[in-house]
Computed example of a mutant assay.
Amino acid sequence: MVDEIIEELWKVKDDIAREHDYDIDALVADLRSRKLTGGPRIGNLHAVRVTAEQSLPADAENAGSAY
């Protein structure tokens, strides 16, 4: 059984690839222009993870959590 979130991510990925005719150079150029022009932001997952780890109670860090 495929996770619904993964299915949605695959759909978004495929839609973006199709919009750029599956051309990686066109995709990269679009992503760079979005970054420079203030278009939709691309998330920084490292920052999210660091924030989540910092917000854990001390005993959760030592309890073998997946973080």
Rank of each mutant, 00 (worst) to 15 (best):
D3P: 01
D3L: 09
D3G: 07
E4Q: 12
I5H: 12
I5N: 14
I6T: 15
E7D: 15
E8S: 15
E8R: 15
L9S: 09
L9W: 05
W10M: 13
K11G: 03
V12T: 15
K13E: 10
D14F: 10
D14A: 14
D14K: 13
D15V: 11
I16M: 06
I16H: 02
A17Y: 01
A17C: 08
E19G: 02
D21E: 14
D23K: 02
D23L: 00
D25T: 04
D25C: 02
D25Q: 03
L27C: 04
L27K: 01
V28L: 13
A29S: 05
A29E: 02
A29N: 01
L31C: 11
L31N: 07
R32Y: 13
R34A: 15
K35N: 07
L36P: 00
L36S: 15
T37L: 13
G38F: 04
G39V: 06
G39M: 09
P40A: 08
P40S: 05
R41N: 12
R41I: 14
I42H: 09
G43W: 00
G43E: 01
G43S: 02
N44V: 12
L45S: 02
L45G: 01
H46M: 03
A47Q: 04
A47T: 02
V48T: 01
R49D: 04
V50G: 00
V50P: 00
V50L: 00
T51P: 00
A52L: 11
A52Y: 10
E53Y: 05
Q54L: 06
S55G: 03
S55H: 06
S55A: 13
P57G: 08
P57A: 11
P57N: 11
A58S: 13
A58L: 10
D59Q: 11
A60Y: 10
A60R: 07
N62W: 08
A63T: 11
A63E: 12
G64N: 11
S65T: 14
A66F: 01
Y67G: 07
